[in-house]
Amino acid sequence: MSNIEKELVQNRLVFYENDIEKINKVLQAFITLSEAKCAMLIDKEGHMVTNAGQEAQFDTDTISALAAGSFAATKEMAKVLGEDEFSVLFHQGKVDNIQLTLIGDRCLLAVVFDERTTIGMVRLYAKEAATRLMEIFKVVEKREPSADEKLLKDGFSNDAGNKMDDLFGEDA
């Protein structure tokens, strides 16, 4: 594992409101230009960062996890061929299709589209969107949180434990 990869493993991405606003603008512009149904930005661990476009008719958490899994599996295939990873994956269905585009080192752009547009349009505008998103990520990844910054309130884990007790019952 390279130093850069180690660094990526050890540092989590933190997205602030301002980051999400900027990302949403890029995704919205992409949806308008490409006429895709929806676009989801997913990190490589399978957590969705944000999405734009039509209200998803599917479970976005599951799609995010499976997209990240699919990407991880094909990365191993790419390695066998002597590539680092494949930067674009495309899954074609009868009605809906999904294209996954690698964004920098940590994220994927998953685009769901149907016959209202073409793979070419999606690919073209996804490239442009990827360039803009990478600019935003450069800032997100470089940002050093201040030592006393608390992203989560004190007692967060206690409250979460209580919430889980409520969910499953004390003795479950």
């Binding site: 991405l13 997205f15 602030y16 999400i20 957590h47 960062v49 944000t50 992203l151 989560l152």
Partner: peptide
Amino acid sequence: MAQINLGRK
């Protein structure tokens, strides 16, 4: 690695 998304809370 967990994702903390303050934008989407």
